[in-house]
Design a binder for these strands. Structure first.
Lengths: 214, 214
DNA sequence: TGTACATCAGTGAACGCGCGTTCACTGATGTAC
DNA sequence: TGTACATCAGTGAACGCGCGTTCACTGATGTAC
């Protein structure tokens, strides 16, 4: 080769990204976007900045994603997977059919929102993503399915029972609202102290024990 | 002009919305931004486009607002005023202390979210606005105050009673979650049909009638 | 085993664009005298 | 009452910027023979 003697330089390139094709750029980009979304909010990310943080040229992301929205969808998809896993783990930590199992699903939800408020918000701000990404809709429905499952077990009814669906939705909206209020208003707007677990148990009891409505 | 009497107490300036050059550009800009936010989402507005829609040059907005964030804050402030007014009107349409009055506050909240989903989302996505705008915090607290008031009347307890605060927060998070889920997932994720008024009455009953917790 | 080749994840330069904001200005308005 | 003046909400041109995306390319990798 006309290049200089490679002998000395040949040794070991200590830089971790020695490889031209670096391992998993897609995953690294998603991680970078998550970071950006947490720092600057759901719309405060740019493809360019994400690429910069992944240590790659600004054109590189387009080898893995069609365009900017697709990157967002990738982040949301991955986040929903983690959210569902957390909810399932919460339920699994308590006896099947117990009120605690229901509350634990809610606790996982709230914990996720608190740990990743930016991503959490992003998941629910994909107004345009609905039509474009049926797989995201599916994943959302699966998350809801975890709630339905816990409620059904608790009430000893089949998951498709209307009353189960209704109460599961009530619980979900409750927990969803609590999560959002929590991350939106770090400054408390109420004088009452809220302990999550107590609160979620109380909610679960109020919703599941109240008289069935038509 | 002859409409003077500057030293007397009743020195009321007639001509409430004096048209200098353009009429009330400030209000028109806010209206334009509301429109943009509804169309393109909370972050999908630009100062330039708002000015365009108001029929003025792109520099004109800076005669009324310091910068872009201040415009957003103006929109949110105005929206919170309308939201509170709607909640108060809802409560006032039913007997003081009735469960219906409580549910009507929630209904007004949900109605607002459904009528202006973009603005509604914007109100709750001002992550940075908290420190910058104490007046927005105050307005938010006042909105919550409407809920507290209705709950206090219903339970016949003072508004600063911890149980009142706790139940008001529960109701709020419930309604907040329902509102968000409603505007986020137009496609229903549950098989159960939700009638708002029934639903809100049920919620109010479940929250206010359940046994008091420590 | 070595070699030729197709594949494909990267580069880096370039593009057009719309944005936020500033600037000196203009001309209508309200007021003091 | 008329006039001179200060005020201020507008203009329109200009700026620098970072963005999303495209493009021809490069060179490492895996595989068929």
């Amino acid at each position: 080769m006309p290049d200089e003697a490679p002998s000395t330089a040949h040794a070991h390139r200590v830089t971790p990204k020695v490889s031209y094709h670096h391992g998993d750029l897609r995953a690294q980009l998603i991680a970078a976007v998550r970071e950006l979304v947490e720092t600057y909010g759901p719309d405060g990310f740019s493809v360019a900045e994400a690429a910069r943080r992944a240590g790659v040229s600004s054109a590189a992301p387009y080898k893995h994603f069609k365009d900017r929205p697709e990157i967002l969808r990738g982040v949301v998809s991955e986040a929903m997977d983690r959210l569902r896993a957390a909810m399932e783990a919460g339920a699994a930590a308590h006896p099947v059919g117990s009120l605690e199992a229901v509350a634990a699903v809610g606790q996982a939800y709230v914990d996720f929102a608190r740990a990743e408020p930016g991503v959490f918000r992003l998941v629910f701000s994909l107004t345009e993503g609905h039509e474009n990404a049926p797989d995201l809709l599916t994943k959302g429905a699966r998350c809801f399915g975890v709630v339905v499952h816990a409620v059904a077990a608790c009430l000893d009814l089949p998951p498709d029972n209307p009353d189960v669906q209704r109460r599961a939705y009530m619980l979900w909206s409750f927990v969803h609202g609590h999560s959002f209020l929590h991350i939106d208003m770090k400054t408390k707007v109420t004088t009452a102290e809220i302990d999550d677990w107590d609160y979620l148990l109380g909610i679960s009891h109020a919703v599941l024990a109240s008289a069935a409505r038509s």
